[in-house]
Amino acid sequence: MTTPYGTIFYFGILFLFLAPIIIAGLNGRRLPVYNAFVTLLFIYWMFSENYIQGIAFIAFIFWQLIIVRLYFNYRRVLNKNHGGIFTLAILMSILPLIVTKMQPLLAGHLSLVGFLGISYLTFKAVTMVIEIRDGLIKEYNSVEFVNFLLFFPTLSSGPIDRYRRFKQDVDKPLDKEKYLALLNRGIFLIFLGFLYKFIIAYLVSKYWVEPLKFNLINHINFGSSMLGYMYSYSMYLFFDFAGYSAFAVGVSHMLGIQTPMNFNKPFIARNIKDFWNRWHMTLSFWFRDFVFMRLVFWLTKKKWFKSKFTIAYIAYFVNFMIMGIWHGLHWYYILYGLYQALMIIGFDIFERINKKYKFYPKNKVTHVIGVFITFNFICFGFLIFSGILDKIPF
Rank of each mutant, 00 (worst) to 15 (best):
T2Y: 13
T3Y: 12
T7L: 07
Y10D: 06
L16R: 05
L26G: 09
G28M: 13
G28I: 08
V33K: 15
L41V: 12
M46A: 05
M46H: 11
G54S: 07
W63G: 07
W63Q: 13
W63N: 10
F72R: 02
N73Y: 06
V77E: 15
N79Y: 08
L88K: 12
Q103W: 04
P104C: 11
L105A: 11
H109A: 08
S111D: 13
E131S: 02
I132A: 01
L136D: 11
Y140A: 01
Y140S: 00
N141V: 02
F148M: 02
F148T: 00
L149S: 00
L150W: 04
L150I: 09
L155Q: 01
L155F: 03
S157L: 14
I160Y: 01
Q168E: 15
L174W: 14
D175R: 04
K178D: 15
L183N: 04
K206D: 13
K206P: 00
W208G: 02
S225T: 10
M226G: 05
Y231V: 06
S234Y: 00
L237Q: 02
L237N: 02
F239N: 00
T259E: 01
N262K: 11
N264R: 13
I268Q: 10
I272S: 02
L283V: 13
M293Q: 13
M293A: 15
R294E: 09
A315H: 06
H327S: 12
Y332R: 00
L335P: 01
L342G: 01
F350A: 11
K356E: 14
K362L: 11
N363K: 09
V368K: 09
I388E: 05
I388Y: 05
P393V: 07
